[in-house]
Simulated assay, not measured.
Amino acid sequence: MRRRLLPVLVLAASTLAFTACTTPSSTPSSSPSSAPSSTASAEPEVDPQLTVTLDGLTFTDDDGTTEATFEDSDALLSLLEKATGELPAPEAVEDMPGYELNLETYTWDGLQVTADSTGESPSWVTVTGAEVDGIPIATEEGLTVGSTRADLLAAEAWALVDTEDPATATELGLGGREVPDTQSLTHPGSVGIIYVLFVLDGDEVTRIMSPSNDFSDL
């Protein structure tokens, strides 16, 4: 059984208006000049955005860009708390027979983080909506929940096993990266990889998981 891995600035320039009035006369005369007027520079505005990568999450807003990797679950959760203003209470994940994984989940509207409560193993995310508590979330390629199969294929997504057709498969991968000292379960003899997983219902993406892999046995 496959295991999911343990996943503008527009410058506003001030406008300076300067006018001067003179009275026609054979003798030069002075008249009061209007005082220079200016408009205050507009504050830069950046629409908040969450981005999913193979390595973690990126959050961009007016304060700049914050990144957190899946290797650092505390930083990942802090990033999401900053973005959304909340940190849901964790819920323990029931272990499968024969395994003691210490997993717990944190669930926002549109996204779930699965983390190792001991901090020893990486976390991963499952995206279930095009927004997380109202903040748009997408992959680096701009793919979201709601994207189409055509969008995925245009980004060169592939079927997880060679016997499946990308035009009909219910799961597609994107952005594979080899992980040293692992062995692929779907391509025996090859080094295992991590990738972003897209789950489809028909031709529409309903879920995104990062990172996923082809070498875990869970």
Rank of each mutant, 00 (worst) to 15 (best):
R3E: 03
R4C: 08
L6A: 13
L11W: 08
L11F: 10
A13D: 03
S14E: 06
S14G: 14
A17Y: 01
A17R: 14
T22D: 09
T22G: 01
P24G: 08
T27P: 02
T27Q: 13
T27G: 09
T27A: 07
P28M: 07
S31L: 15
S34Q: 12
S41Q: 10
S41D: 06
A42P: 03
E45R: 12
E45C: 03
E45P: 00
P48Q: 11
Q49R: 12
L50P: 04
V52T: 04
L54T: 12
L54S: 03
G56F: 08
G56T: 05
L57D: 02
T58R: 15
F59G: 06
F59K: 08
D61C: 08
D61G: 08
D63S: 15
E67P: 06
D72H: 14
S73F: 01
S73Q: 13
S73P: 01
D74G: 02
A75C: 07
L76K: 13
S78G: 01
L80Q: 05
E81F: 02
L87V: 08
L87K: 10
P88W: 05
A89M: 13
A92E: 14
E94M: 00
D95G: 03
D95Y: 02
P97T: 06
P97N: 10
G98E: 05
Y99V: 12
Y99D: 04
E100W: 06
L101I: 03
E104M: 09
T107R: 14
W108E: 06
G110A: 06
G110H: 03
L111A: 12
V113K: 08
T114C: 01
T114P: 04
D116C: 11
S117M: 07
S117Q: 14
T118D: 10
T118E: 10
E120Q: 11
S123Q: 10
T126N: 11
T126M: 02
V127C: 08
G129V: 06
A130G: 03
V132T: 13
I135A: 03
I135K: 04
T139N: 04
T139Y: 09
E141G: 05
G142L: 13
G142T: 01
L143P: 06
V145R: 06
G146L: 01
R149D: 01
A154F: 04
A154I: 06
W158G: 00
D162T: 14
T163G: 00
E164W: 11
T168M: 03
A169T: 11
L172W: 10
L174N: 00
G175T: 04
E178P: 01
V179F: 07
P180R: 10
D181K: 08
Q183E: 15
L185P: 00
L185E: 04
T186W: 04
H187R: 14
P188L: 05
G189P: 05
G192W: 02
G192A: 09
Y195N: 06
F198A: 02
F198L: 09
D201T: 10
G202R: 01
G202N: 07
E204H: 01
V205L: 09
P211A: 15
S212D: 15
S212Q: 07
F215V: 14
D217Y: 09
L218C: 02
L218G: 05
